[in-house]
C-alpha cells in the first residue's frame, strides 16, 4: 500500500525543468529523509506528492490508484512557513478543525493550549502556529505525512516535541512520513533511510 511517484518531471511554465525522472517510494510506517541543496525542487516534489501540483511527466499513485481528487486527502503536506499556511482571517479554532476535530490527547501531546483557540494567527508565534498546522494534518484518514522543513524555524525543544508526536503516530497508525530537511543529525535520528535529490537539469 505504498505512496509511489514514478518518473516525475515538472517545470513552471516554460522555464527550466525543476524535476526530471524522479522516483520516490514511501511504505506505510516508513520514515524517509529527503535532502539536497536549496533550489533543486524538494518543495516542488512535496507539492506533487500531496497533489498540490500535477506532474507534467510521470505519475503519483497511492495503493496503485491516483490520489483522490475530492474529500480528505490521505497524503497531507505540512509546510515550512506556518504563517503562510493558515487563513489570516480565521480564528485558530476554525483553522484547527478545517479537516477534522482533533482530540484532546493530540492537543495535549503537541502542547496546544485551549486559550489559543480564540486567537488570530498573527497573535501566535511560528512555533505555536506550526503545532496547529501539524494537528490539522494528522486526521485519522491521514496515511502519509509530507513534512517540508516543518521544524527549521523552531527551537530544539519544540522540534523534539513535534517529532515525538509524529514518531508516536508512525508506530500507532503505521503512518508513512517523508522528512525534507537540511538538518543532518535530525535526519539521522528520525529516518529509516535518506534520499538525496540531485541536480536534474533536463
Amino acid at each position: 500500500m505504498p505512496l509511489e511517484a514514478r518518473g516525475i518531471g515538472f517545470r513552471y511554465e516554460s522555464g527550466q525543468w525543476v524535476l526530471r525522472g524522479v522516483d520516490i517510494k514511501l511504505e506505510p510506517g516508513e520514515i524517509v529523509g529527503l535532502t539536497g541543496p536549496s533550489g533543486l525542487g524538494k518543495t516542488t516534489l512535496a507539492r506533487i506528492l500531496a497533489g498540490y501540483e500535477r506532474p507534467l511527466e510521470g505519475n503519483v499513485e497511492l495503493d496503485g490508484n491516483p490520489l483522490p481528487a475530492t474529500g480528505y486527502n490521505p497524503v497531507q503536506l505540512v509546510f515550512q512557513h506556518p504563517e503562510k499556511a493558515v487563513n489570516p482571517r480565521w480564528r485558530m479554532c476554525d483553522i484547527l478543525t478545517e479537516g477534522w476535530e482533533p482530540n484532546d490527547d493530540l492537543l495535549t501531546s503537541l502542547s496546544i493550549e485551549k486559550g489559543w483557540f480564540s486567537r488570530w494567527p498573527n497573535e501566535l508565534s511560528g512555533g505555536e502556529l506550526q503545532r496547529f498546522c501539524l494537528a490539522r494534518a494528522l486526521g485519522p484518514q491521514t496515511r502519509y505525512l509530507i513534512a517540508d522543513e516543518i521544524t527549521a524555524m523552531l527551537d530544539a525543544i519544540t522540534q523534539a516535541q513535534i517529532w515525538h508526536v509524529v514518531l508516536d503516530l508512525v508506530h500507532k497508525r503505521n503512518l508513512g512520513v517523508l522528512v525534507i530537511s537540511h538538518d543532518g543529525p535530525l535526519l539521522k535520528r528520525l529516518c529509516n533511510r535518506v534520499t538525496e535529490l540531485k541536480s536534474e537539469m533536463g
Binding site: 527551537d155 525543544i157 522540534q159 523534539a160 515525538h164 535520528r189
Partner: peptide
C-alpha cells in the same frame, strides 16, 4: 533536546 544529543522533549 537537540537531535544530536538526547532528543528529549520537555512538555
Amino acid at each position: 533536546a537537540l537531535a544530536k544529543n538526547e532528543f528529549v522533549a520537555t512538555p
